[in-house]
């Protein structure tokens, strides 16, 4: 399989003015040449093959947007190389634009006043989609979601969910090789989220489109991505399969118990009893994050049973969300 995106040691630095405080400070800033260099992306490399769905994750300000902007040709890397479908994005912005589709969760790119179908027709002309391809695409869309009621509705009158759906359809319309989705499910209700995930999955399967997904919703990641890439402070933390990730910190499970008596007091006592595990209390439940390399959940449970009267219990596998949270907070050891 060929690489659709090749990124080799890219770094992006921004020059930021060191701002001073107060009115006097801002007056001084007017004439200041006192810049500091901020490295938003620091020596990142990755290859992405055609047809992959890659979850591109990282806390706010990690450098995700900057990387995406370099891949779409809006920013030029300070050093390193990017090839998207064999060409350098910032040198061939127009050609690159023909190859990609972009969706921002909360910013529509459709014509605000126009019914969706008219936006589609204009996009068809802009991207030079043939009549046959256009017709086939609409048929495919029809088979995946019920677009008929959307087609004749002005984008302005749509709900956020309908608009996001429309934006995704518009981004795939010219059958681009790569689609960048930036938080496509932000602010949507559960059923709409599911609908959009199904749609993205189906379009990826059907058209073998490469999808780069940035999100903070681990539901998106679980539903769509086999591979995830995590960056923080501009540095690559992780680039591998999602299955791999779960065993990344050892095998964790969360034991949740409900006990009689004061919740926080008991939690404190348990925490003292098991200093190697993290213990938290909320909603009447006490959670113990058990590292099964150290002792099994059953051992912990039977030991707890000796001291406390356990009224109820639950066992949870660690979620992607928790692993990611741990990576964000603690980094990779």
């Amino acid at each position: 399989m060929s690489n659709i995106i090749e990124i080799k040691n890219i770094t992006k630095e921004f020059k930021v003015l060191n701002r001073r405080e107060g009115l006097k400070g801002s007056l001084k800033d007017l004439f200041s040449r006192d810049y500091k260099i901020v490295r938003a992306v620091d020596n990142i490399s990755m290859n992405i093959t055609q047809g992959e769905i890659v979850g591109y994750l990282g806390p706010n300000g990690a450098g995700k947007s900057t990387t995406i902007k370099m891949m779409t040709g809006i920013l030029e890397p300070t050093s390193g190389e990017i090839l998207v479908d064999g060409c350098i994005p910032y040198k061939n912005r127009t050609r690159n634009a023909q190859n990609i589709g972009v969706v921002f969760g909360q910013r529509t790119q459709l014509w605000w006043a126009l019914p969706l179908v008219e936006s589609f027709k204009i996009l068809k002309d802009i991207y030079g989609v043939t009549d046959k391809d256009y017709k086939d695409m609409l048929e495919l869309y029809q088979s995946l979601v019920d677009i008929e009621p959307l087609l004749h509705k002005p984008v302005r009158q749509m709900s956020l969910g309908q608009r996001t759906l429309s934006d995704i359809l518009a981004a795939f319309l010219h059958n681009p090789k790569i689609v960048f989705l930036d938080e496509p499910t932000i602010g949507l209700d559960v059923s709409m989220k599911a609908k959009i995930r199904t749609l993205i999955h189906a379009l990826n399967k059907e058209k073998n489109t490469t999808v780069i997904l940035t999100t903070h919703d681990m539901g998106d990641v679980d539903a769509l991505c086999r591979r995830i890439v995590i960056i923080d402070k501009g540095k690559m933390l992780y680039d591998n399969d999602i299955e791999h990730l779960k065993g990344f910190f050892g095998y964790y499970r969360t034991l949740k118990i409900r006990v009689s008596g004061s919740l926080s007091e008991t939690a404190e006592k348990i925490a003292a009893e098991f200093p190697e595990f993290s213990v938290s209390a909320n909603d009447e439940w006490i959670s113990v994050l058990v590292d099964e390399a150290k002792s099994t959940v059953m051992d912990v449970l039977s030991q707890l049973q000796k001291t406390y009267k356990i009224r109820d219990m639950q066992l949870e596998e660690i979620s992607t969300e928790e692993v990611i949270k741990k990576i964000y907070e603690e980094g990779v050891k």
Binding site: T72, I74, R93, T94, R95, A97, Q98, I100, V102, F104, R107, T108, Q109, I126, Y127
Partner: peptide, 12 residues
Amino acid sequence: SGDFIKYCFRPI
């Protein structure tokens, strides 16, 4: 507002 970026992705 940053909305201007949407204009940058079209091949025109």
